[in-house]
């Protein structure tokens, strides 16, 4: 009941914000190219055919999600290896930091030239941007396992892989998921950055395209749609955590 009420308040707040936006634009006659009215944005949204929206959404989503899952598939084993071997960690960690410190926007055009203008290069760009938070959160999570549990494992003389799979990784889930929440929004950013550099479809491309035709309300519609998609993906990661890894939510021992 209480949550329902607070949700209602949040909804009211957003509606009020939109209303204030609409009214201020009308009262001060703000030109469309500076800040379009919500009604104009809504109209622009409706003017674009549904299946065009879906085509752009699918283009962005398949890049963002492929990049996200490939990143996940690489970062998990890598984190395990780096946790096991201090030498490998010393070898790879600076490399990861360099990758993270390099602005993806700057290398994206090079990647397009090297890898091509199709999805693989866009996915690679997405991987580069999502990779680091995943590796770091996994390593942090696995190192945060209580010493007693590791001692328990050692006192049982269990094989190392079971220590990793039965103790460290489940324990790290809380950390891994906070990394995943960051990574999923970064994945969308990565896909959009890639589309800014080379694309024939996608929400990022659509926004850039709309701007190039000075269709500012349409660009805003694309932007808001993209933000909603991002939010939904973020929420999905949370739902997955709540559904399958509920213990990791209050794992503050």
């Amino acid at each position: 009941m209480k949550t329902l009420l607070s949700r209602l308040w949040i909804l009211l707040f957003w509606l009020a914000l939109v209303a204030v936006w609409e009214i201020s634009c009308r009262v001060w006659a703000v030109p469309e190219f500076i800040l379009p009215m919500p009604s104009a944005i809504w109209q622009a949204f409706l003017d674009v055919e549904f299946n065009r929206w879906m085509a752009h959404l699918w283009a962005t989503l398949r890049v963002a999600l492929s990049g996200f899952f490939i990143s996940l598939a690489i970062s998990l084993p890598l984190a395990i290896v780096m946790l096991r071997s201090a030498t490998i960690k010393k070898l790879l960690y600076p490399m990861l930091v360099v990758i993270q410190a390099t602005p993806v926007v700057a290398v994206a055009p090079l990647i397009i030239v090297l890898v091509g203008t199709e999805d693989p290069s866009r996915i690679l760009i997405t991987c580069l941007i999502t990779f680091f938070p995943m590796v770091v959160s996994t390593i942090t999570g696995m190192s945060a396992t209580p010493d007693e549990l590791i001692e328990l494992s050692r006192s049982l003389q269990a094989p190392r892989y079971r220590e990793t799979w039965q103790i460290r990784i489940p324990y790290a889930m809380g950390h891994i998921f906070s990394g995943l929440r960051v990574a999923i929004t970064l994945a969308v950013i990565g896909a959009v950055v890639a589309e800014f550099v080379a694309a024939e479809e996608g929400l990022g491309y659509f926004i850039q395209f709309s701007t190039s035709f000075f269709k500012i309300p349409q660009a805003f519609a694309g932007l808001i749609f993209l933000a909603c998609v991002s939010l939904l993906l973020f929420k999905s990661v949370q739902w997955v955590q709540q559904l399958w890894f509920p213990w990791s939510l209050n794992n503050n021992e």
Binding site: E148, E151, A158, S248
Partner: peptide
């Protein structure tokens, strides 16, 4: 194998039921 340890904190695994926690050493070993 013939030494068991009880720690200061219970150090149970939060994702396992009580029964699974008790049998965890076997599963782990």
């Amino acid at each position: 194998d013939d030494v068991g340890i009880v720690f200061q904190k219970p150090t149970l695994l939060p994702w396992l039921t009580v029964l699974d926690n008790v049998t965890f050493p076997l599963k782990h070993k």
